[in-house]
Design a protein around this nucleic acid. Structure first.
Lengths: 203, 203
DNA sequence: AGTAAAACCGACCGGTCAGTCGGTCGGTAA
DNA sequence: TTACCGACCGACTGACCGGTCGGTTTTACT
């Protein structure tokens, strides 16, 4: 039943897959509907039979990706290890994704200015919440069980995500070793800080 | 003597100012040369008298901004306070910039896919180094004088910049209080980490 | 004032691209 | 066999945009 994709569904999926490849490699404006159609082995007419506009195709592609990631990260969010272990696990899951899937996460921030109005808001809100909210769940529990210092879980989550995005980004590759090594550094920094000594003293 | 070229320079500056406003508000492809010309109160012909192409105009705009920021941050880079104070100072200087000037820093990451080849590399390299390198100078000194734990200055700098970018970003405004308040949190996190207790013990 | 050069104008061109539309084709139900 | 329908095709269009160019105005300097 889930097995039997109708012909229509299969074509839609093929178009979305092609769009992912192309939108990751270039930017919204430079990817033409002809290119997507050709890469998906349909014509432009066929593409427009399945999607009403380029913009809606982009949004469909993003929401599709979002749902996949939500499922992927659910394991880390609901598991029972320490806060630290679970954050490492979640980040490692992300790191192990193929390059294209990782890049998709950054697409919204990159292409967001190509959109406007309702569609834009929908996309931003959905995507900004995807990763940060799952991280926040983990961090809130870390605070509650005393593993993390009391504080605002939300800003901590955003900080953690910011650090991870630096680790993940390709532009960091030529700056500092492997992504795995950087992951270790970033997690250490997040938990223990950069100061030389446990500040001790007046506290 | 500088007077002689003043008219031309004034027009160029007006065009660059208009371009900044528009490119920050939208993305590279959606800002037309006609829009820039109109906003700068010249015609397209006039614009092309001063800049040979839209791409080169964009690059000029970016390099202009880069130089302003370099000068602005020099104070923090060369002053004598503690590492922590200087990082706070530098970040505060950045926070006090008008919105548009702050956003420009994120433009490169946003629009980078609109370019290719030599121009692209030049821009990326110049911009990636602008803030991180000045931060790295401060952090290296912090490590040398024992204020920070020994480690890789570069990844620490990138991490700090990543945290600041999250603090600065408008999208964070509706998530957590004022930018100034977030700045405090982020600096604390960077130096002391999020763990509940000074890990102490075995060290 | 006279003049050459720089600054500026705006109609125009070549090309691109999202989206359209009349039509084809293979399956399927009656 | 016929009638129908969704999937798909691909030539076409209308709007737009970066860049050009011949011509006009302004500036700077004698």
């Amino acid at each position: 039943m889930t097995q039997t994709l109708t012909k229509s569904e299969a074509t839609s999926a093929r178009i979305i897959a092609a769009a992912k490849r192309l939108f990751v490699a270039s930017n919204y404006a430079d990817v033409t509907t002809d290119m997507i159609a050709k890469a998906a082995d349909v014509t432009k007419g066929g593409l427009y039979h399945h999607f009403p506009s380029k913009e809606r195709l982009y949004v469909s592609m993003m929401l599709d990706d979002l749902e996949r990631k939500r499922l992927l990260f659910e394991r880390s969010t609901t598991s029972r290890g320490s806060c630290r272990d679970r954050l490492v696990q979640l980040t490692r899951d992300f790191l192990e994704l193929p390059h294209e899937e990782r890049e998709l996460t950054r697409l919204v921030r990159r292409d967001i200015n190509a959109f406007s109005g309702r569609e834009r808001d929908r996309l931003v809100r959905a995507y900004q919440r995807a990763l940060p909210e799952q991280v926040e769940t983990i961090i809130s529990q870390g605070i509650r069980n005393g593993e993390l210092a009391p504080g605002d879980a939300r800003i901590l989550s955003w900080s953690f995500v910011a650090l991870v995005e630096v680790v993940i980004g390709d532009y960091a590759d030529h700056v500092y070793g492997s992504a795995q090594a950087r992951l270790g550094h970033v997690v250490d920094l997040f938990f223990d800080g950069a100061a030389a000594l446990p500040t001790g003293g007046t506290q």
